[in-house]
């Protein structure tokens, strides 16, 4: 079984970390990740940019509405995610609209990926 491990923290706190503190946390996580990679258990890992960089497509209305900022509602649940490689936000939005047309309702939050680590192989 594959599991997604979703990371939550107060970004005001993580953004208040100094570069050294941030590096220290990443180094400690790196040790764990290396072990998991060797065991063939680690899939892709993404560190997302802060929510100030997010854009949201509300697709619970017609036409869907693009708003700046993260998806902040609490009545919906996180059900899945895509990673797409685009030249800019416009292209990412275009793809998002296409997905939205196929599956209306709810919202998509589009968040740029800051750091992406693609582990060699996951046994599935």
């Amino acid at each position: 079984m594959q599991y997604a491990i979703l990371c939550y923290h107060d970004e005001k706190v993580t953004c208040a970390w100094s570069k050294e503190e941030d590096d220290a946390v990443m180094a400690k996580l790196g040790v764990v990740m290396e072990k998991l990679t060797k065991q063939g258990k680690l899939g892709p890992v993404a560190r997302l940019l802060p929510t100030t960089a997010a854009t949201t497509l509300r697709k619970d209305r017609e036409p869907p509405l693009v708003v700046d900022g993260p998806f902040a509602e609490t009545k919906e649940q996180l059900l899945g995610f895509y990673i797409v490689d685009c030249k800019n936000l416009d292209e990412a939005l275009e793809i998002t609209r296409e997905l939205g047309a196929a599956n209306p309702g709810g919202a998509y939050e589009i968040r740029p990926v800051g750091v992406f680590f693609d582990a060699p192989k996951v046994a599935s």
């Binding site: 940019l49 802060p50 854009t55 693009v66 700046d68 800019n88 416009d90 990926v113 800051g114």
Partner: peptide
């Protein structure tokens, strides 16, 4: 690279 990525993402957003 991380700060550059964030900066570029924000300009992309602003330009729209």
């Amino acid at each position: 690279a991380k700060q550059i990525a964030e900066g570029l993402a924000l300009i992309d957003k602003a330009v729209r």
